[in-house]
């Protein structure tokens, strides 16, 4: 599945992450990550975003993530919200939580 519009979830407050999904330029998941803890947790943040997108079978999207030290649960929650907004889903995807 691919994302065809641009959506945002999350804020720039500390311990939050802002996820912006937009149509991909290529054929894959593209993750552009800014983080204060890039060196310590960059791979982990990308992994959580990727896994969450995979649960929704999203294979083609551009992700811009601006992280302010969010924990994994926050990253997952913001990513799910962004995907649901992009797909126009209003009911919580309980099985993904």
């Amino acid at each position: 599945m691919e994302i065809k519009k641009t959506v945002i979830a999350g804020t720039l407050e500390s311990s939050d992450i802002q996820i912006t999904l937009s149509p991909a330029t290529g054929d894959n998941l593209e993750i552009e990550l800014e983080s204060d803890v890039l060196n310590q947790f960059g791979n982990q943040i990308k992994k959580v975003i990727t896994e969450t997108l995979q649960k929704f079978q999203i294979t083609k999207v551009h992700v811009k993530a601006i992280d302010q030290g969010a924990l994994d649960c926050v990253i997952r929650a913001r990513t799910i919200t962004a995907v649901q907004r992009a797909l126009g889903q209003t009911e919580p995807a309980w099985e993904e939580l």
Binding site: V37, N39, Q40, F41, N43, Q44, L71
Partner: peptide, 9 residues
């Protein structure tokens, strides 16, 4: 447990 395993420099 809270923050996860950080990558060492």
């Amino acid at each position: 447990d809270i923050v996860g395993e950080a990558q060492l420099p």
